[in-house]
């Protein structure tokens, strides 16, 4: 029997599909999703997205190591979350915390998250993403006027002010647009 091209593609697709679906769950799954594996694992948990994202950009867990998330995501710490009360009920906290810890930089296969994990090894775990050495280093060439002095940015903590694909966990330079500085190029 002759198998035509269409059937071959269909078969190939069927063989690959389960791989893609399990991409983040199995030990070797990361082999199946090369492009996304370069960046930071996106937020794919609805509760995390909603609870964190209602007050600020829902930072991907891969932006901090698990030690940081442990310090941030507990009853006591959330009662004074950078000056605001961000308390969660027990069930919600459990889910948010579990998602953060499972996907933290040091647990992630994503390349950029790994670099973050490496740069936070040893020493006190940072509480702020802006204190992560790797992230600081990546931004140190940008003049202050474009961040702090820029009314549409104000601080490094507003990732999505310049990183147009931040919510998908994509932080590469190609997707950077600094408000009021359209011509800036690294």
């Amino acid at each position: 029997m002759r198998i035509n091209v269409k059937t071959m593609f269909l078969l190939a697709g069927l063989l690959c599909a389960p791989y893609a679906a399990q991409a983040e769950e199995t030990q070797w799954g990361w082999l199946g999703s090369f492009t996304r594996q370069k960046e930071v694992n996106p937020v794919n948990n609805k509760v995390y997205q909603e609870e964190c994202g209602s007050c600020h950009f829902a930072y991907q867990p891969g932006l901090l190591p698990s030690q940081s998330w442990e310090k941030l995501l507990n009853d006591k710490a959330l009662a004074d979350h950078f000056g605001d009360n961000a308390e969660l009920d027990a069930d919600t906290l459990k889910e948010v915390r579990a998602f953060a810890l499972e996907n933290a930089a040091d647990k992630s296969y994503y390349k950029r998250a790994r670099k973050i994990a490496k740069s936070t090894e040893g020493g006190e775990a940072p509480l702020r993403i802006t204190e992560v050495r790797y992230i600081k280093r990546k931004h140190n060439e940008i003049p202050e006027k474009m961040i702090k002095g820029n009314k549409d940015v104000k601080s490094l903590s507003y990732c999505d002010a310049c990183h147009t694909k931040a919510k998908d966990g994509m932080y590469d330079e190609d997707a950077v647009r600094i408000p009021n500085y359209p011509d800036w190029d690294d």
């Binding site: 209602s54 007050c55 600020h56 950009f57 950078f82 000056g83 605001d84 104000k154 903590s157 507003y158």
Partner: peptide, 14 residues
């Protein structure tokens, strides 16, 4: 005080 409009978080601006 305008309930028909968006508000803004005092720190994050969200």
């Amino acid at each position: 005080s305008d309930f028909s409009k968006d508000g803004k978080h005092h720190v994050t601006g969200k």
